[in-house]
Amino acid sequence: MSDAPLLVARGLTRHFTVRRHPFARASGVVRAVDNVDLTIAPGETLGLVGESGCGKSTVARLIVRLIAPTGGTLLFDGEDLLALSGQALRRRRADIQMVFQDPAGALDPRHTAEEIVTEPLEIHAIGTRTTRRERAEELFARVGLRPEHLRRYPHEFSGGQRQRLGIARALALKPRLIVCDEAVSALDVSVQAQVVNLFKQLQRELGLAYLFIAHDLSVVRHLSDRVAVMYLGEVVETASADALFASPHHPYTQSLLSAVPRHVPGGRPRIVLAGEVPNPLAPPPGCRFHTRCPLAFGRCRVEAPASVDLGGGHSAACHLVTKGAPAPSLRRTDHA
C-alpha cells in the first residue's frame, strides 16, 4: 500500500494575511497550516483531528484546491497538483471530491435532488441526459435513497438524507479520494451511525480513500486506518489508529484523548488541560503547545521540536519523545 501513495502533501503551508480594515497595511499573519506532511494510500482512511482553529479545515480546502497554498507540494497519483490549471486541473478535480458538514448549506435549495447529483456530470460533459439520469438513480441506490427522492428539493429531506444526497453528488464523478470535513458532526447520534456505516460500505465497494476530518475522536477512531493530530497549524502526531489510541505519545494527543467522555459510568482519570488554544496570530515561540503542556520545560519555550520517528509509521513532534522509550506520562499532573 505504501509503495504508491494516492496523495502526498509535503511541507504544505497556508498563511493568511490579516488586516484591520480592507485598505490597511497587513497587521499580522495567521499561520493556519504550517509545514504539514500527510500521505494517503489508495483505499485508506486518514483521520485528521484537532480543535477549532487548528487548521484542519484549511488542509481540506488546500487538498481540494479551493484555496492555494503559500508553500509546499501536493502530489496526487504522482502528479503535481499545484502545477495544474485549466482543463488538466478540472479533470483532476473529478478524482478529489468533498463532503461538507452542513448539507443544507452545501446544496442549492432551488435545485431538485436529481439536478444536484447530475450537475457535476454536466459540468464535466459526461453522458447524455438519459445516461445522467440513470447514473443518478444508481447513485441514489448506492447511498440508500429511493428513486422517487430524485424529484425532491433539499428541504424535503431529513438531515441524514441530505447528507446522503451530498455523498451521492461527491460520488458522481467516480472520485478516488473524498475529503469529508465534519461530515457527520451535525447529525443526530442514531442517524450519525447510519452515515458512518455508509462511508465504510462505500469504501469497501468502491475502494475509495478518505481524508476524514472531525473533532469527534470516537467517530475518527471507528473510521480511520491512520490518524494525524493537529495543533495550531502543525501536525503533532501521526500513527495508525490502533497505535494512536492505544499509545498516544504527544502530550497534546494524550490530553485530547482523555478529554473525550466515555459512554461508561465512572469514566477514567482525566487529564484536564489548563487554558485554551492560544491566538494563532501570535503562536507561542518554541513548541506551540508549551503554554498548555503540563510537562513543558526550558527547551520547549525556545526550540520547536522536530518530528521523531517512532517506527511503524508512528511519529510525534515533542522533545520528550524518544524512539523505544515509553510515552511521556501526564498522569499525576491532573489539574483539579
Binding site: E51, H215, L217, L256, A259, V260, V272, L273, E276
Partner: peptide
C-alpha cells in the same frame, strides 16, 4: 472544543 468541554464539566 473537547478539552474546554472537560474544563466546563469539571
Amino acid at each position: 472544543d473537547v478539552t474546554v468541554q472537560a474544563q466546563i464539566m469539571d
